[in-house]
Nucleic acid binder design. Structure first.
Lengths: 143, 143, 143, 143
DNA sequence: TTTT
DNA sequence: TTTT
């Protein structure tokens, strides 16, 4: 049945992406990004709340993450919510909710918060494309 | 810093909403909704995967849920992702990710999958509005 | 530079889609869909305003439209805004804004408002998929 | 009937906003913003296409625009599509499609492309909030 | 636990 | 021109 599962996030990376190159040639990147919301508590004081999102990116998006994304960078991420279960060290079933990225864009100049975390192997040249979509075949993967 | 945390879901309720009326006059509703995705596995077989989302709705959205939403109904939910921690029975810290609804619309005729689950107190009349937004003051609440 | 141009619509078709099969094998479908908004005027009277959207769908989405979509059906359309210019009969430059569909889902039972407008050649069987995405190669087309 | 009319744009302002202060205390701002898409033409050459969007912002969003937004700034705009008609100088009915902003966020450092166009009256201090939502009463206005 |  |  028709359904929609869409997430749109704009925020900053909490750390450099961790990328694994899987046997078979696939890559997967994981990183966290923060979004902030503000509200007034009962006393009228402005309170900030930070939400941390676990992002998973596959294949060409993983490679983009590895090459260009660093801690502190501001990004747009479009994707879908996915909760998976795993066994913790006590063999208990636990759940983790992640955002599987389908599109990533680098915002700002792509270098906010950078510094010592500059990508060393492949700096983003002026003509670097800054929007990437998941390669379509990815939808065929059993994840 | 500017950020965006937006979720858009279309799916069906897995069960009737559970609504609690809090002291102080506030209400909160919880329900689950399913979205489905399809992909082809390595053998080319079409596989269906169901994702279950935990929805939390406050105040007027909670009342909408209580009055009109039932198991099986198709809904549009717009909201934001929120992960909160709690202590489980072994006093371990656990995390649960929820969607805090900011807008809910009833799709279709709003009665798919209905039947024995009809709302009894206030059936959706023809002129029932079918889109609801969170009342703005809600953003002031410390949740 | 990174940018996002995204539209999400849920509404009903105002008429059956018009589909043209282009030389070279491509297809394009055009239809209108209505969304409604409500507000209270200065006297507090509830007023309804209907917005009409021009939808353009290419290739496999055009074929979906031709086969399954009819006047009155409720659909989810995700796409992008595109304004193009043309010359009117007095050779004046005019502009028209359209939504180029990237994903279409049939909502409800897909048959609201149907009746005499049933698709005759290929009725939507129970197992008909109800979500369609634009084929990726479409992005290569010069439109 | 339930419907959704939602637009999400990220792009850069093409010019400084034009703001009018209406009798009765309301304000309205108009500006254009550009989004870019890339595709490959039949020869495989990468082509850029710029889409220009007409943005209309009311009340507190108009004041945000007046104070903080300048030509070249990168912004996130969430809103709804609205086509209105008007009479041109030859008394012909014409149509223009605009995006009525419901939320605006300033991205990047908010100063890309700035320079001689700095806001003079009220520079964005470090603690300036960078996300603004339309005040809810706005939905009551007959526009 | 939904839907097709 | 849709829907409720």
């Amino acid at each position: 049945m028709a359904s929609v599962n869409k997430v749109i996030l704009i925020g900053h990376l909490g750390k450099d992406p961790e990328v694994r190159h899987l046997e078979g040639g696939n890559s997967v990147a994981n990183f966290t990004m923060a979004t902030n919301e503000y509200y007034k508590d009962k006393q009228g004081t402005r309170v900030e709340r930070t939400e941390w999102h676990n992002i998973t990116a596959w294949r060409n998006l993983a490679e983009l993450a590895e090459k260009y994304l660093r801690k502190g960078h501001q990004v747009y991420v479009e994707g879908r919510i996915r909760t998976r279960q795993y066994q913790d060290k006590d063999n208990q079933t636990r759940y983790i909710t992640e955002i599987v990225a389908e599109e990533i864009s680098m915002l700002g100049n792509g270098r906010a918060g950078a510094g010592e975390n500059q990508p060393t192997n492949q700096p983003a040249a002026a003509e670097t494309p800054t929007t990437f979509r998941e390669e379509p075949e990815l939808n065929q993967l059993p994840f």
